[in-house]
C-alpha cells in the first residue's frame, strides 16, 4: 500500500510536468491511466479506463496551460480506486470526479500564485546578467505549484477520498473565484510593461485600433493581424512612397519593388 502510494505520487507529479517536457501530452488521461494500471497491477484495465476518461474529458484542453492536471488527478485516483475494487470505468469516473473538481480550484490557486510571484526573481537576475539565476527561476516557477499540489492525490488514495475532499473544502469559494478573476486582471501588468517598451507617439493609435476592433467586432487576433498588415502596407506607401529617391537610385525600381514585398511577407508570417 505504501509503495503504491509513493508510486502514485510519482505519476501525479509526472502529469503536470507535461509542460516541462514540451507540452507533449504525457499528462493526458490516456497516458496516466495505463501508468496507474501498471502500479495497481492491472495494466489492461488501466488502459481501458484511461481511454474512457480521455473521451469523457476530450473537451478539457486549456490553451495557456493553467489548469490541465485536474483531469489527470481524476484519472489517477479513479483508476486506482476502480482497480482496487475490481470494478470498471464507471466506478473510476464516479471516484475520480470529486477530486478532479476540487483539484481545479486548488490548481487555480497554486498555478495563479506561485509562478507569477517567483517569476519576478528573474528580473533581478537579468539586471545582474546572471543567466544561471534565470535558469533556476524558470525551473522553480514551474515546480513550486507542482510540489504544492500533487501530494493530494496519493493522500486521497491512502486516507480515502472523503477525508481529503473535506480537508480541502475549508478553502472558501470566494478565494478561488477571486483568483479566477485575478487571472483576467493580472495580464494587464504584462501588457502594460510590453506597451511601455514598444509604444511611441507615432504609432500609439494602433494599440487602440487593435483593442477596439476586437471589442466591437469580436474577431480573433489573427484577424486583427491580417487587417493591420494591409494597413501597414497602405501607410508605408503613403508615408515613404514619394520621398524615397535614395532607394530608387540604389537599384532599379523593380528591384526595390521585390524587396518591399519580401519585407512585408516577413511581417505577415
Amino acid at each position: 500500500m505504501i509503495i503504491k502510494t509513493i508510486l502514485l505520487y510519482l505519476v501525479a507529479t509526472l502529469a503536470p510536468l507535461d509542460q516541462f517536457f514540451g507540452t507533449s501530452m504525457i499528462g493526458r488521461a490516456i497516458i496516466v491511466g495505463p501508468l496507474t494500471g501498471l502500479i495497481m497491477g492491472d495494466l489492461h484495465t488501466g488502459i481501458v479506463i484511461g481511454a474512457t476518461m480521455e473521451l469523457a474529458f476530450i473537451g478539457s484542453v486549456s490553451i495557456g496551460a493553467s489548469d490541465p492536471p485536474d483531469m489527470a488527478s481524476g484519472t489517477i485516483l479513479g483508476t486506482a480506486f476502480a482497480i482496487q475494487a475490481g470494478a470498471g470505468p464507471e466506478v473510476a469516473l464516479a471516484a475520480g470526479l470529486p477530486i478532479a473538481t476540487i483539484m481545479l480550484g486548488i490548481n487555480t490557486l497554486a498555478w495563479g500564485f506561485f509562478p507569477a510571484i517567483i517569476m519576478h526573481r528573474a528580473d533581478k537576475y537579468a539586471l545582474e546578467g546572471d543567466t544561471k539565476g534565470i535558469g533556476r527561476t524558470m525551473f522553480l516557477a514551474g515546480f513550486a505549484p507542482i510540489l504544492a499540489t500533487t501530494w493530494i492525490i496519493p493522500a486521497a488514495f491512502y486516507f480515502g477520498n472523503k477525508t481529503i475532499v473535506q480537508l480541502i473544502d475549508v478553502i472558501p469559494k470566494f478565494v478561488i473565484t477571486g483568483m479566477d478573476i485575478a487571472a483576467g486582471v493580472i495580464p494587464a501588468i504584462g501588457f502594460a510593461m510590453l506597451i511601455n517598451m514598444i509604444m511611441n507617439k507615432k504609432v500609439a493609435v494602433f494599440f487602440f485600433f487593435g483593442f477596439f476592433v476586437v471589442q466591437y467586432f469580436k474577431i480573433s487576433t489573427i484577424g486583427v493581424a491580417i487587417f493591420s498588415v494591409m494597413l501597414a502596407i497602405v501607410l508605408t506607401q503613403i508615408i515613404y512612397g514619394k520621398n524615397n529617391k535614395g532607394e530608387t537610385q540604389i537599384g532599379a525600381s523593380e528591384g526595390h519593388k521585390t524587396s518591399t514585398i519580401e519585407g512585408v511577407d516577413f511581417d505577415e508570417f
Partner: peptide
C-alpha cells in the same frame, strides 16, 4: 514602421482578448 503598426495592433487585440474585468 510597418512592424510597429502590426505589433501594436496585435498587442491591442491581445489586451482586449486576455484582460478581463
Amino acid at each position: 514602421y510597418a512592424a510597429s503598426v502590426i505589433g501594436l495592433s496585435v498587442a491591442g487585440a491581445m489586451t482586449a482578448e486576455m484582460v478581463n474585468v
